[in-house]
């Protein structure tokens, strides 16, 4: 599966560092970055600017995964949440380092750098963001 690496590599700026972008026309911020603003469309073309997001936000909704995909089997039960980032965009991510009972809508979280998946024992290891409770 070594050939799949390019697809991940391309997204390293997002997965490691929350690199999003902003519409130069309406100022809306997007993560992951978009080619054009879906609200301004042609007015935004050529005006999309890179912005680095903080990776901080709060839980909009969540679930506890009890039956996980193969790569995540060892981690069940694990929480997955939709996080609304401070800058506006919403993203999906795992919440770690806290008791399942602590997770609730509105929980403030920040990002932490973790291993997300690996292609078996011989393939590439993919890193990226997960979230933990804000101190």
């Amino acid at each position: 599966m070594g050939e799949a690496v390019a697809r991940f590599w391309r997204e390293i700026p997002q997965r490691y560092n929350f690199m999003g972008n902003k519409c130069g026309s309406c100022e809306r911020i997007f993560f992951p970055p978009r080619e054009a603003c879906p609200f301004c469309r042609r007015k935004s073309m050529g005006k999309m600017q890179e912005v680095q997001l903080t990776g901080k936000g709060e839980v909009v909704t969540y679930t506890i995964i009890h039956v996980g995909p193969e790569e995540f089997e060892e981690q069940v039960p694990y929480p997955i949440a939709i996080i609304k980032l401070e800058e506006g965009p919403q993203i999906t991510g795992q919440i770690v380092d806290c008791s399942i009972d602590d997770i609730h809508i509105g929980l403030k979280v920040e990002s932490t750098f973790r291993r997300i998946q690996a292609e078996g024992y011989t393939g590439a290891i993919y890193y990226g963001y997960k979230f933990k409770k804000c101190e």
Binding site: E11, T61, T63, I65, E71, I80, I91, Q94, I105
Partner: peptide, 25 residues
């Protein structure tokens, strides 16, 4: 979304479960 949902461990039932959690809330 394979790259921005499933990649991070979200399953298909998990995505509908998140709709349910918010609906309950």
């Amino acid at each position: 979304d394979q790259e921005w949902e499933a990649f991070f461990g979200a399953t298909f039932p998990g995505i509908y479960a998140m709709i349910a959690t918010r609906h309950m809330h």
